[in-house]
Each structure stands twice: as structure tokens, then as C-alpha cells.
Simulated assay, not measured.
Amino acid sequence: MTYEGVLTKMQTEFGNPIQYYLVFENSFLNINQLLNKELEITFQGYQCLNCGKKKKIFRQGFCYDCFMSSAAAGDWIMKPELSTAHLDIEDRNLEYEKLVQLQPHIVYLALSSEIKVGVTRKTQVPTRWIDQGAVQAVPIVEVPNRYLAGITEVALKNHYADKTNWQKMLKNEIPEVDLVTERNGLGNLIPEEVQPYFEAVPEKKYELVYPVLEYPKKVNSLNLDKTPQFTGKLSGVKGQYLIFEDGTVFNVRTFEGYVVKISLS
């Protein structure tokens, strides 16, 4: 059985364990059902997620021209503190930026490889944490726009990582910490303008369980540009990674915009 289409990040459904889906234009795969089965992934070409042209992907599923011009690829995406829509100042497209930036955002602590601080739109809870491979997460503050979330994250970066160590995350090398206690001790680190949003006790601690039969001891990334065809037995899914029995891992999100054929034995 074969499936063909343009890769986009796996869609997820919160559960115990989390359910994963690869969605193509005319079909979809429930990845959980493929555990312990042989998959063949074949690279067939590119298709920009923005313009739809068959141009080489530059970053985030976009060709170079779209990445440099699209409002969905502005610097404020990766650096929320650069958001300006609340000031009515345009970066690339003010209408789009207001839509995304001027909505509730969560600043959080998550445990994926070590404690990390991050920002997500409220509508992306718990999807954002699933995509990072976090096993636990707690909200720190909920603020009305992306800028306030961004300056809070910047203030906390001096004390916590802001990126996941993907190798440790995939090997499940995670320290034992009490995220709620950690979070409740942050009050004096929060910027003054965000202090009113800081609550003494978080609404909820999220626990996330992934469909993994066995975690690898060593990991080796599959790069479709260098290895256009790969076959392996699927042993797990975590974050946006497919984990194979031989320790090969495939980051679906890295290869958004790549056209692939997936064959099932």
C-alpha cells in the first residue's frame, strides 16, 4: 500500500498515548497503527507550502522567495518579542500580524530534554508541547498578545533553555523535576508589565505520553536530500519525529514541502 503527497507537520490528537496523523491532499495515515511495521520513504520532489510551486524548499516548508516575503515567516514568529501589531506597526502584512499576534498567548515551562521556557498561542495548547516532545508542561502566564509573551520569555531565557535538545528528547533522557514548584518560584523574574497576569498556582500540569515501543540509545537523522530512499521498521513517534528500530529518526517538520511516497509492507 502506498501514500503520496506533500509533507506537512503531523497532526496530533491528545490522548494516552497521543495519536499521530500524516495528512495528504487525498489520504491520511494514522501513524500509531504503523508501529512495528516496515515503512519505505521515497523523496520525489518539492512543493512550496505557500505558493505551491515545485521550487526547492528553503525553510519552514517555503521556497526562498516566499520565506523572504510571506507574513507567516516574519522574524516575530521565532522571536515573539519583535511583535509590533499591538502598536499598529506592520512588519510584512499588518492584517495577518494582528490576527496572529493580538490573541491570548501562553508562556510556559516544558520538560522535554531539560526545563525549557517557551511561547505559544493559547489555541495551540497542548499541540505545541506535543510537537516539542515534552513529557510535562505547565503554563506560567496567559497574556493578551504575542509581544507580552515574548518579553516574558526573554526575561526567563537567562534562567532556562529556550530550545529542546532533540537527541536527549528522542532518547528519553529527561531529569526528574517538579515543574509546578519551579514555575511557582518565578514571580520575581516576570517583567513588571506582565506581573498582573502571573497566578500563584497554574491551572493545570499537562502530562504527555508518546507512542514509543523502544527509545533508541543512539540517533541518526534521516536527510532526504542525502538519502532520498529509506526503509526501516517504525518503533515510535515523539515530537514531530518518526523513530525507527535502527536508531534512524526522521523529523517530519524539517521536511515540510517535500513530496514523498510512503510504502507500507
Rank of each mutant, 00 (worst) to 15 (best):
T2E: 15
V6K: 00
T8N: 08
N16Q: 10
P17G: 05
Y20K: 03
Y20A: 08
V23W: 01
N26T: 05
I31D: 02
L39Y: 03
E40C: 12
T42L: 08
G45Y: 09
Y46F: 15
L49R: 11
N50R: 10
C51V: 07
C51D: 12
G52L: 04
K53E: 15
K54A: 07
K56M: 10
K56L: 03
C63Y: 11
Y64D: 11
C66L: 04
M68L: 14
S70V: 02
T84R: 14
H86C: 07
H86S: 09
L87V: 02
L87Q: 13
Y96F: 14
Q103I: 09
Q103F: 00
H105W: 13
L111C: 05
I115V: 15
V125D: 12
P126F: 11
P126T: 10
I130H: 11
I130T: 09
P139R: 08
V143K: 08
R146S: 08
L148Q: 08
G150K: 02
G150H: 02
N158T: 10
W166D: 11
W166Y: 15
W166L: 06
L170R: 12
D178G: 11
T181W: 00
R183H: 04
R183C: 10
N188V: 03
L189T: 04
Q195N: 06
E203L: 00
L208K: 11
L213C: 07
K217Q: 15
K217V: 12
N220V: 00
S221N: 05
S221M: 08
L224N: 10
F230L: 11
V237R: 01
I243Y: 11
E245M: 01
R253V: 10
T254I: 03
V259C: 10
